[in-house]
Every structure is written in structure tokens, then in C-alpha cells.
């Protein structure tokens, strides 16, 4: 099994996961690199992504499994070749043999940039730090069996806030990537639900890294 480490940023953040699953196989086709296809009536490229990324979120740590067919170019040459065949914002950083399975991914580190149009970033930082210091954070969250009140505090492994100028609060968080998985977006939902007076006017989410059980970077 082979693996790509790639970024999905900027305009590409608006591409859905399904769009991505069409775009990457096409990039292989364009690059003239043959990869394994499924058998059957409607053969399609055999690719899988570690953790589907929500629309609007960016990432610098996406992982995708594929399998080069024998006789294809070397993995070292692949990033350059694919990058000329991918849309703006999707950039392959590395191609390599996958040694560890996706199931060893335990956590996800993300940066959330919260924008406050009316300023007051310092006070917001203080208030949010206090909010996330609570032992329980119950929000109405979508689960497999519909919307349910759920305590998301256990899923937030670490979280910190820091003001960056008058209008911006930067949040660094690590959330569970194992069942029950927590989308970093839940941090914003917590703010909007439990402290609506501190709801941001706009926010961005950027995935920074995937982590294993020891907290080391998973690639």
C-alpha cells in the first residue's frame, strides 16, 4: 500500500470530500500513472482517505492510500508529477510506502482562527479559556441516531486560546480521531451554544497534524 501526504487549502477547501475522491484519481490519470482499480462492472480507482475533511476546513496533513501498479514511476517522483495535475490548493507533499494502518490514528490537532469584528480579542481569550476549563460541555450534536445532547469535553484532549491582535483569537486544539470522533468544529459549536455572547463573526479551521496513541505525528 502506498500513501500520499497532501494539503487542501485556499479555494480547494470548498471542494467536498466526494469532489476530492473524483479529483485525485483523475490527477493520477492525467499524470499517466496507473494505480489499482476496483474490479467489476464499473471499475474505479482504489483510493481511500484517512479522515474525510469537512467542506470549508483546510488541512496540511491529509493522507490518502492508493496502490501503484508495477512498473510505474518511483514514489519520489510522484509528488511533482501529481502537483502539475491537481487544482489550485491541493498539493502533494510526500508519497511513500504506508507502514502503519489508519486505525492507529488517535487524535487530530487543529488550529481554529476566530474573528471578532468588534474586537476585544483579549477578553474573549480569557472568557473562552474559562469556558473550556469546565468539566462538562454539553451540546446538541449530530450522531448516527439523530441529534443528541452530548458532552464533548472528553473528546477534546487539549485546547488553548491566544489573542492575535485586536480581532483574532487563535485556538489550538487536539480532538479525538477515534470513536467517538470529534470534529474540531465542535469547539465553535460549544462557544455558540454555551457562550453565545462570545460567538465569533467568522472562523477558519485548519488541520495541522494527525497523532498516534503516543501523541507522535502519524503519517
Amino acid at each position: 500500500m502506498n500513501r500520499l501526504l497532501f494539503e487542501k487549502t485556499g479555494r480547494a477547501a470548498y471542494m467536498s470530500h466526494l469532489d476530492l475522491m473524483r479529483t485525485v484519481p483523475r490527477a493520477f490519470m492525467r499524470a499517466g500513472v496507473a494505480i489499482k482499480h476496483t474490479e467489476g462492472f464499473n471499475p474505479h480507482a482504489f483510493v481511500s482517505v484517512a479522515m474525510p475533511l469537512s467542506v470549508y476546513q483546510e488541512s496540511i496533513c491529509e493522507l490518502l492510500n492508493f496502490e501503484l501498479l508495477p512498473g510505474e514511476i518511483s514514489l519520489e517522483q510522484l509528488p511533482e508529477k501529481l502537483n502539475s495535475c491537481l487544482p489550485e490548493g491541493i498539493k502533494v507533499l510526500k508519497a511513500y510506502d504506508a507502514r502503519r494502518p489508519f486505525k492507529q490514528i488517535e487524535a487530530l490537532e487543529a488550529k481554529i482562527t476566530l474573528t471578532y469584528d468588534r474586537g476585544g480579542a483579549a477578553e474573549k481569550t480569557e472568557a473562552l479559556t474559562e469556558l473550556f476549563g469546565r468539566s462538562q460541555l454539553v451540546i446538541n450534536k449530530k450522531t448516527k441516531s439523530g441529534y443528541k445532547d452530548t458532552d464533548v469535553r472528553p473528546g477534546i484532549k487539549s485546547v488553548s486560546f491566544a489573542a492575535a491582535g485586536e480581532n483574532i483569537v487563535e485556538c489550538l486544539c487536539t480532538v479525538s480521531a477515534k470513536e467517538p470522533v470529534l470534529n474540531p468544529e465542535a469547539v465553535v459549536t460549544v462557544i455558540n451554544t454555551l457562550a453565545p455572547e462570545h460567538a465569533p463573526d467568522f472562523y477558519r479551521i485548519m488541520r495541522l497534524s494527525l497523532r498516534d496513541a503516543e501523541g507522535k505525528i502519524f503519517e
Binding site: R11, A12, M15, D19, R30, Y56, L86, P87
Partner: peptide, 17 residues
Amino acid sequence: RILRKVQKPARYTGGEL
């Protein structure tokens, strides 16, 4: 900010290959 509020935002972003 407005793209967050609409369906199929990829219609409005450009940036294709």
C-alpha cells in the same frame, strides 16, 4: 463569509485545473 451560507460553494470559487 457568504460562501459558508450557500449550497455547493465550489460553484463560486474557481481555481480548477
